[in-house]
């Protein structure tokens, strides 16, 4: 093959590579673009079919954000969601980290079967758990309280995160734990000083999983909570911004944007850690 043919081939390969990347970037970024442009578009502009939907045909407006913040209790809902989210994440880590570690280190078939059992609980559809849960919530007197959600959500996050963390803990060689024990730590000290820092990708994944579940969960939040001041974002936004057949698209997209952007930023900050964590787990 001549040198020019090789050069052409190389450029074609590079072009293909960038083309593919560009397609992925467009695919991932488009929802954010759509939320952003809808949030600041006048409703007339948004609904007129003659207008180019990808651009501002009228000047941008802050009206939708004003509706969101002033006319609804969105800020309150954000606070509620954060409270529930942080509590659920804390409970999840408190239970799933020791459980995952124990299952990873528990020798023999017993541990394996228990791990599978824990994973199976995650497969039970939430709708089946409704009736027992509402009985429990009622008998505890937690109806219409955010604490009902703090109690219910860990029932999905703990099994999944236990399973997830178990995989990460298994990837950490026992040797380094034993080395820490020889170097002067107790088993628990070795766990804190050596295992946890080497498992940060797994713990971060568990945190993001638990937090996003709280952000998006709808059915339980709708059922257990009745007063609007106790709503979370996922219930408050569709309840108040869809009135009959009128959709407040601008405000809804604004709410989505405000909730999803921080998560996206956190995820992007740690994305290399995630990838590293997953590949370490895959190879060894």
């Amino acid at each position: 093959m001549s040198t020019s043919a090789i050069t052409i081939k190389r450029w074609a390969a590079r072009g293909g590579h960038f083309g593919l990347l560009a397609a992925f970037v467009a695919f991932s970024a488009f929802p954010f673009y759509w939320m952003l442009i809808t949030t600041f578009k006048e409703t007339n502009d948004l609904l007129a079919t003659a207008n180019n939907p990808f651009l501002f045909n009228h000047p941008p407006t802050l009206e939708h954000l004003r509706v969101l913040v002033v006319d609804t209790q969105f800020v309150r809902w954000l606070g509620n969601t954060t409270l529930v989210g942080v509590s659920v994440v804390a409970i999840t880590l408190l239970l799933a980290v020791p459980a995952g570690y124990a299952l990873a280190r528990l020798a023999g078939r017993w541990g394996q079967q228990m791990a599978i059992g824990i994973f199976l609980t995650y497969l039970i559809p939430p709708t089946i758990l409704f009736i027992p849960f509402s009985r429990i919530i009622a008998s505890l007197g937690l109806q219409d309280s955010l604490w009902s959600l703090v109690l219910v959500y860990p029932s999905f996050t703990v099994p999944f995160c236990t399973w997830l963390l178990m995989g990460f803990f298994k990837a950490i060689p026992r040797d380094i734990e034993e080395a820490a024990m020889m170097d002067g730590y107790s088993r628990f000290g070795a766990f804190l000083k050596v295992v946890v820092p080497n498992c940060s990708a797994g713990i971060l994944t568990a945190v993001i999983f638990a937090f996003t579940l709280v952000l998006q969960e709808f059915v339980y939040a709708l059922t257990f909570i009745t007063s609007s001041s106790q709503y979370t974002v996922s219930v408050g936004v569709p309840t108040f911004l869809v009135r009959g057949d009128v959709y407040f698209w601008g405000s809804m997209m604004g709410a989505c944007l405000i909730v999803s952007v921080p998560i996206a930023i956190v995820f992007n900050l740690f994305v290399d850690r995630f990838v590293a964590g997953f590949t370490v787990g895959a190879i060894k």
């Binding site: 040797d175 024990m181 020889m182 170097d183 730590y185």
Partner: peptide, 20 residues
């Protein structure tokens, strides 16, 4: 006694260095 109270040092086959 647990390992930490025996004042011994161990070198492992894998070296067991702390990766972080």
């Amino acid at each position: 006694l647990p390992p930490r109270e025996r004042n011994m040092a161990m070198v492992f086959q894998s070296y067991a260095l702390y990766p972080h």
